[in-house]
Amino acid sequence: MRKIMVGVKRVVDYNVRVRVKPDNSGVVLDGVKMSVNPFDEIALEEALRIRERGEAGEIVAVCIGPDDAQQQLRTALAMGADRAILVKHDGLLEPITVARALKAVADRESPEIIILGKQAIDDDNSQATQMLAALLDRPQVTCASKVEIKGQTLVVTREVDAGLETLEVDLPAVISADLRLNEPRYVKLPDIMKAKKKPLDVIEFASLGLADPGQLKITHYEPPKARAKGIMVKDVAELLAALKTKGLVS
């Protein structure tokens, strides 16, 4: 039966307003709530639905990250993944490194479908899917909003700037989940208990035998420029007057 691999990144929760450290060396992460990247929840949900339709067997959740990322993998197991793999890596990860590590895991696991998120909401890179597909020399479909399995192909609709586009790709393939692919299920307490017994393998990044190229260095963090304070108007007439002053309506 077809295996699905899903990427799960541990990221700062989307509700947190991230702040830059006063010495510009990074962002404040101490005591900040961490979560599964929201797009990865959507990716996993899609995998679960494919399995529930009887179109896939095992679902493996994979994270490249620190030891603490076991928490996010446990969440993925509670949602319904069968197994989890943590590739232990501390510190900043470059996109190409993530892709190489995911490829190393995919080479061992041979999934037919790999579903990642459209982007990780911390670094906002949007690269892993495309890179992993390139390294595997397989098809990619990014920003999926609908996925259908037809024999040995996937028919995927994706959200693009102009609207929607549908592609057909041969399996194995790598796809990324966009917001409207599905709505992820909530984890229930009994599932959390069950997830504790599911297998979670931890492997050292170094054991994959990959170079960690360090090609890009981040040398400085700064907050975005603040906008000048605005004015409040009391009614529509005042609003129009203010817009006219700025030459924005005639």
Binding site: P95, Q140, T142, Q215
Partner: peptide, 20 residues
Amino acid sequence: SFGKDVMPRVAALLGVSQIS
């Protein structure tokens, strides 16, 4: 959506990370 789709694939084939 065009550039975000194709450029990381280019970067990976060139063996580098992309600056997004």
